[in-house]
Design a protein around this nucleic acid. Structure first.
Lengths: 154, 154
DNA sequence: GGCAAAGAGTACCCATGGGGTCCCATTTAG
DNA sequence: CTAAATGGGACCCCATGGGTACTCTTTGCC
């Protein structure tokens, strides 16, 4: 499955909506516009605010707005705000004491895969994510030898 | 976090060990060599066998061996054997009825991200995964030209 | 000033499924 | 025949994703 959590999905959708709007938007409006249950949307937005990705305005007529330009927010940041550091496997995550890490030749390669995925997600901005007709696609390539040309054709 | 499950991690480690050995190897030997609890290793191997990635030999002196060359098994296959189809988000997975999918501009982009990740994992063989000093790295590129766009759409 | 409309913070609950164990049936070498 | 293996279940536990509720605090507006 290799899933991101639903909450993260919500976060992307919500920030996407914010990217479309100029001023601040209330949780209620955002929730309605995204078909996300309001309390849950509120929870997600609070988390995003703590992470500094959105700014909140309290009080009457308050709401949320993006803390930066949509072009300056990456999908990776949103994921990390909700789920923590991107770590494909446990052993890739910072302080894991894999019992036989000396032996484990697999680890280094998971690390590389993890880096590739992280880099990819860091390269995708919220602005791009907001456009269904995004002109850019993303591909992952082996960086190396001669046959890399063929690496896409599966 | 974007994690693959521990069981999948185990699967990669176990198949890696199989790639190093010629004949069949018993679950016990594999479990000991990988520091994975034996019953759990057994479970994983059964799943891999059902998926056709490893062959089992029953009876005394039985065990497992790779069903194909290590160069002909991809990491993507192992992941899918344990976790099912690679689907970064729910809406990417086959039969999801996302309430407002018409509206949801995010979906198409998740699909693209998903494809990129899947393609990457399909390009990594078990043989490569088994070598800690793998010479190849993996990187992700944005392809903003129209031609590459076509090459990914499956 | 006071009320109402917002978000902040936190505690809490519930269901799902990852992770793990066990048992018994079946196969096969010696 | 027996022991050593896997096949195929059923089963359990508990961490956590997902969702809810309730009480502060801030602030616009009459």
């Amino acid at each position: 499955m290799l899933r991101i959590s639903k909450l993260t999905d919500y976060a992307v959708v919500l920030t996407t909506h914010l990217a479309d709007t100029a001023g601040v938007t209330s949780v209620r409006a955002l929730a309605e516009g995204s078909a996300i249950p309001e309390p849950t949307a509120a929870k997600v937005l609070k988390t995003l605010a703590k992470a500094g990705l959105v700014d909140s305005v309290r009080g009457a007529h308050g709401g949320y707005r993006l803390a930066r330009e949509a072009t300056a927010i990456t999908v990776a940041e949103i994921i990390e705000a909700i789920e923590g550091p991107i770590a494909v496997t446990e052993c890739v995550d910072a302080e894991s004491e894999c019992s036989l890490e000396e032996q484990c030749g697999v680890r280094a390669n998971w690390q590389r895969i993890n880096d590739a995925v992280a880099t990819a997600l860091q390269g995708i901005t919220l602005a791009e994510m907001a456009r269904p007709d995004a002109p850019r696609l993303f591909q992952i390539r082996k960086a190396d030898s001669a046959e890399t040309a063929r690496s896409i054709t599966r």
